[in-house]
Amino acid sequence: MLTFKPFGLALATTALLHATAYAAPAPQQAARDEGAIWMAMALNKRLSPYALGVEVQGEQVVLTGKVENQQDKDLAQQIAEAVGHQPQVSNQLQIDPALGDQPPSRQALAQQVDDATLTATVRAKLSWNTSTHGSAIKVSTDAGVVTLTGRAKTADAKLLAGTLASNTDGVTVVNNLISLSAADTRTTQAEVAAKTTDESVSDAWITSKVKASFLYDRNLDALTIDVQTREGVVSLGGEVASSEQKTQAVQVVRTLRGVRGVDADLLKVALASAG
C-alpha cells in the first residue's frame, strides 16, 4: 500500500489515462495513479488551494483532506473517477466552510504551471505579430505578473508587446521594461515592413494564429467568431457582444504576420436583449 504525499512523487507527471477494465494494480501502477490523480486536482483552479491526499487501496482510490463545500468534494471525486484505473472512489473529504474565509491561494506547482503557460503564450503571440516578430524581447512570469525585458525594434513594437501581454487571459499585471534606442525609432519601421513583405506565410498558418489569438484574448470569445483566409486576406464572421469587441478583433488580426487585409463585414454585433 502506497501513500501519496504532495510534491514527493516523481511519477506525478504521468499521462492521465482512462481505464477500460479493472485489474489489481501493481505497486508501480498504483503510484502512477496516485500521482496522476493528485496532479489533476493540484492543477485544477478550484481544488488547488486545498491540501488533499490520494491513496490507492486495492480496487479503490481514497481521497482525504478538507474542502470548502459539497461542489468541490464532488469535483474531486469526478476527477479521481476520470483519471484513475480503480472502479471505486472512497471520497473521505471533509467539508469545512471556514476554508472560504481564507484568502485565495494556489499550490506552488499549480502556480508554476500557470506562469509557464502564460510565458509561453505571450512569447507565441509576440512571434506571430509583424512588429514584434524577431525582436529580442524576453518574457518572464511570476504569480500572473508578466515582465517584458530586452529590446524592441520600434516604439510601436514596445507598445504592442505590452498590449499583447496585458490582453492575455490570466495575466494580472504587465511590467513593460523593454528598452528602445533612438536609432531603432528612426530606421526600423521601414525594415520591419520590408521584412514582412518578403515573408511567405500560408493562409492556413494565418487562420490558425488568428483563432489562437482570439482564444488567448481575455476580451474575445473565440467560439463565436468564424475565420477564413484567402491570399492573406482574413474574413471574419459570426457574432461578438459589442462594437468594441469587433474593433478589437480586427485590430488583433491586422497585427499578425502575413495578413494583407481584414474583411469584417460578416462579423455582427449581437443585439441587446429587450427589457
Rank of each mutant, 00 (worst) to 15 (best):
M1Y: 07
T3F: 14
T3C: 12
K5P: 03
L11S: 14
A12Y: 06
A12Q: 11
A12N: 11
L17I: 10
Y22Q: 07
P25W: 04
A26M: 08
I37K: 04
M41Y: 01
K45N: 13
L52W: 02
V56S: 03
G58E: 04
Q60M: 15
G65K: 00
K66W: 09
K66N: 13
K73T: 08
D74G: 14
A76V: 03
A76C: 05
A80L: 01
E81V: 07
V83R: 01
G84D: 05
A98K: 13
G100V: 05
P103W: 03
S105Y: 06
S105E: 09
R106H: 14
A108W: 11
Q111M: 06
D114E: 09
T117L: 13
T119N: 12
T119Y: 06
A120C: 10
A124R: 15
L126G: 00
N129W: 06
S131K: 13
H133K: 14
K138R: 11
V139T: 03
R151K: 14
L160S: 01
G162E: 04
L164Q: 02
L164S: 01
A165W: 01
V171A: 02
I178P: 03
T185D: 13
R186L: 15
K195M: 10
D198R: 15
T207Q: 14
V210C: 03
V210Y: 01
F214V: 02
F214P: 00
L215D: 13
N219K: 15
D221N: 13
V227C: 01
R230E: 08
G232S: 06
G232F: 01
L236C: 05
G237D: 02
V240D: 01
V240Q: 01
V240A: 04
S242P: 02
S242D: 09
Q245I: 03
Q245R: 14
Q248R: 15
Q248M: 15
Q248D: 11
A249W: 00
A249F: 01
V253Y: 00
D263K: 03
D263S: 04
A264H: 10
A270S: 09
S273R: 14
